[in-house]
């Protein structure tokens, strides 16, 4: 089975060092980059699938050149190879451009499944996977809590989380699946994995070599504009309630009642 996992480099949320540059864009140099947390869950799901069914995992991202470094961390977890689409003109791209570029890149790959995380911790749009599925006319299976491929019959069954439970969806492969954290904690890369990742295939390609028709794409042509930014209000003081479960419950109820929340 061939699986493509979309893994985006994002500023490490723990570093809390995100800054905007003069163009109101994220200053990616200001903060250490990590693989987007939700994408790691998608990668973990993919790793479990190839452990069970055999196959290969290709990582795909569109990012500045430094994204290759971050991709090595995902390769260390066990992916087979990486493909980075990088071009200065793409800086500041909006969702449509991103989807066009990634869909074009996917067109050159062989795959049974494309896995993506629910959203990214920097942009937070959460619509790129759906846009790709729409462009490539792939079955789109969102909010997956369980993935059960049936390679001989070329079909995949997905358990999709809903507000009241779950739906069981079935689709022909290739398909695009958006993965939730219910699929399981991402593994910690072993040292052997880290060492193996150093020599894994990691290709960086430009738009031209992809043959993508993205004239008018990139930050200069973005369809969205940043009107203004402000920091979220800092959180108020924390109250820690100690004691037995009953004491705790009573204290919390009193606290909420005092604030007229209940």
């Amino acid at each position: 089975m061939h699986i493509v996992v979309m893994t985006k480099p994002v500023p490490d949320p723990a570093a809390a060092a995100e800054r905007l540059d003069a163009d109101q864009r994220l200053d990616r140099a200001a903060s250490p980059a990590v693989v987007n947390g939700n994408d790691e869950y998608a990668l973990e799901a993919a790793l479990k699938l190839i452990e069970a069914f055999g196959g290969e995992i290709t990582l795909l991202t569109m990012a500045p050149a430094a994204g290759a470094e971050t991709m090595r961390k995902a390769l260390a977890m066990g992916a087979t190879r990486g493909l980075l689409i990088s071009e200065p003109a793409l800086a500041g791209s909006d969702v449509p451009t991103t989807a066009i570029v990634l869909a074009t890149a996917l067109g050159g790959l062989t795959y049974d499944l494309v896995l993506a995380g629910v959203d990214t911790s920097d942009g937070g749009g959460g619509v790129v996977p759906a846009a790709i599925a729409a462009r490539l006319r792939l079955p789109y299976l969102g909010n997956a809590a369980k993935i059960e491929p049936d390679p001989p019959n070329g079909r995949v069954t997905v358990r999709r989380i809903t507000p009241i439970g779950y739906d069981v969806l079935e689709a022909p492969m290739p398909a695009l699946i958006v993965c939730t954290q219910a699929l399981g904690e991402p593994r910690y890369p072993s040292l052997k994995g880290i060492m193996a990742a150093r020599s894994k295939e990691l290709v960086t390609r430009t738009l031209e070599s992809l043959g993508a028709d993205v004239a008018g794409a990139g930050g200069a042509h973005t369809t969205t504009r940043v009107l203004g930014t402000r920091r979220p209000p800092s959180r108020g003081a924390t109250t820690v309630v100690r004691g037995s479960a009953e004491e705790g419950a009573t204290a919390i109820v009193e606290l909420l009642a005092a604030r007229r929340i209940i």
């Binding site: 910690y188 890369p189 072993s190 040292l191 052997k192």
Partner: peptide, 8 residues
């Protein structure tokens, strides 16, 4: 356990 098996 950590470096080879990631078992912890």
């Amino acid at each position: 356990l950590v470096l080879e098996d990631s078992r912890f």
